[in-house]
Design a protein around this nucleic acid. Structure first.
Lengths: 212, 212, 212, 212
DNA sequence: CGGTAACCGAGACGGTACGTCGTGTCTTTTG
DNA sequence: CAAAAGACACGACGTACCGTCTCGGTTACCG
């Protein structure tokens, strides 16, 4: 995703090709370290040591350690996270049900300790390192908003979108709540997520009286 | 706010008292540095140098530099921010108007570059340093949620609270959106905040059809 | 010995008198710390904490922590070390025997781990802190040289002093060797001290051919 | 001299090689600082700043700042000190003359303010830091004793060594006196060194009556 | 088939900041 | 007014990472 345009069209440059073995071991090492040592304790030095590579190899291919983590996340997500999200984007027949499925899947990710730890780290780095922040917002976060836009467009076509609701507002509410739960809530109480999903679906998908 | 209960009531311990001059110069220095050098570039070393104090004096009274910043924020806020928030908490006659005033004031803070920078830094540190994270959540963030609880209680008493809405859900939506704007949006487009406030007020304060 | 002239004649100054209890506990604490933690690990902070006194009380009465240690040493020595040295200064009948007794006693002290540790510390501090160095040389070290002068004077009176030997040279050789053993030798081999004493007595007390 | 055997013979380890430029500038900086600010006022921080290197580069190659100073001393001594000592070790024809030359050169060094300051510092650190003490004794001090052993061996071969004198005793007396002069004497009086040399030569090199 | 170019591991380098320790001074309370 | 307690400015400690820079060695293309 963040992968820069190293290979313009054909890889026709001379010299040794990029070693895929070290690329993968760097991504694994980054993921392992953030899983084990948590939100802090992630360093380029540490990743290189764990991966058995030189630091330069990391700096050569990624602008910052946070970008490594984004790649590691999407590499993992290739197996379960976005796969789930794709399922979630299946048409459930109504805006309310679409929204419910999307919110459930999102909050489930937010409650997974490892995944939440990574997302926390990425959002934190995005604040601290402005250059990564721009990449993270324009790449990762914007891509997620698109998913909500799909749901809203579908609802509009279907005709069950509450009057006046835009996909922008819907996405801001949905991701605002999900990120707030990741960043600002320690651990969830038993039924919190179910209640929260119900309340949000009620807010966003229920027909409203027109303000006269 | 974070200030621990070092001296219960009477300061009856022997030894030199805490020097208020250095306490204030530390808070000022922290605020200045974060204003000037931005979200990064804040170091205990730098604060101490600017404040003309020893590093130990900082470590003696605050668990981390983020706690210094929280204190600096609330100290500044004593002059304008919470003062504004108090105004905002005045009864405007209806839940919709209360909410609108609260959201406007919150988003105005979120768009202030210095204030947003500080809040970004604090939230980032809360993710990186788990111990500060707990203090930040239980102290700062929780206190803000109370403000929304006041508005919701008032609406319930008044009778214009939409059926089934809890203060918990309202607070999560409101702060979710505000923090998402701070953390995930680069800079706002011209009318975004007005539109966002209108949409949120419509969502949260508009009467809804009962789900039959 | 280093004890400054706190009490000029009569202790007739106003105010609370010097607390002898804290003076003694400071000396004990200094001695204990240097015995336990060895040549390093002696700090004013540590002495004060161990003694249960304020740091100021130490700074009030001693110019440096090394001076505390000198006092602690002479306080201890009041019980055994100088007592021994006094015995050593008894007339043994010949310069050789006087010298042998003195050297034996001195090297025995030099091999006592605690005593050697203290002496090492003092000599080290005398190099690092020029002001203490002056006090240490003029007070402690000079006083020891006097002991050798007594032996040499006695030998001259007796008539068995080798021709041309001065007390200055004798003292420099004797203390040079003893201090070198303290400072520059790790631990002594079994018979080293006996051999060294024999050799030195032979050098200093044996009659010599006149260089013709 | 202290330089450990990091790379036995061939430097076949991977990675960037040690930068000789920074090694030399560190030694120079250490020597300059100890010359200017005297026996105290030498800090790793200061050396690094003056040398224009990072502190880590110092800690990477030397166990302590005293070891840096030993290297700086022997590096300087490559130009004058040991050069002199080599001259001194030339055969002067008799034990007395060899000894006289050695003592004169040694005491001349001991009276050089900068050199004496450095030696004082090293001996002090050897007392305070046991680990450096061991290195200093086994490396620096032991090497100097060898020089005396050479003189004594030569005298024995020549046949003018006083009966019963060992190189061990001779070295202890010589270095005992020289170090005592460095450590325990403030500044020398005019003719002291000449007298001292004469007296020591007389003691160590004069033929003696056999005892009994 | 022998350059030449880019890769890789390892690790030294100049830096910045960390959090701790000790110094010597000062201020406050207690006896 | 001395002594305890302890806050204070200061300076250095030794460590952890940062991002850059050699190194020697390994592919791969290209002429």
């Amino acid at each position: 995703m963040v992968e820069p345009s190293v290979a313009d069209s054909a890889q026709q440059r001379p010299g040794r090709k990029r070693c895929d073995r070290s690329r993968l071991s760097i991504l694994s090492a980054a993921w392992e370290l953030v899983s084990e040592l948590g939100y802090a304790g992630l360093s380029v030095e540490g990743i290189a040591a764990r991966a058995g590579t030189g630091k330069q190899t990391i700096y050569r291919w990624w602008p910052s350690k946070a970008d490594v983590l984004v790649d590691a996340l999407t590499a993992k997500a290739g197996f379960h996270a976005t796969a789930d999200l794709h399922i979630v984007l299946e048409d459930r027949g109504s805006y309310a049900d679409d929204l419910r499925a999307f919110l459930r899947a999102s909050l489930r990710l937010a409650r997974d300790p490892v995944m939440a730890g990574v997302l926390r780290t990425l959002m934190a780095q995005a604040q601290i390192d402005p250059s990564f922040g721009a990449r993270f917002r324009d790449g990762f976060l914007q891509a997620r908003r698109e998913a909500v836009r799909v749901l809203v467009d579908r609802a509009r076509d279907r005709g069950d979108l509450p009057t006046g609701q835009t996909s922008d507002t819907a996405a801001t509410v949905v991701f605002g709540v999900v990120w707030y739960e990741i960043l600002a809530v320690g651990e969830a109480k038993p039924h919190r997520d179910e209640d929260l999903v119900d309340d949000l679906v009620a807010l966003l998908a229920a027909p409203r009286h027109e303000p006269h």
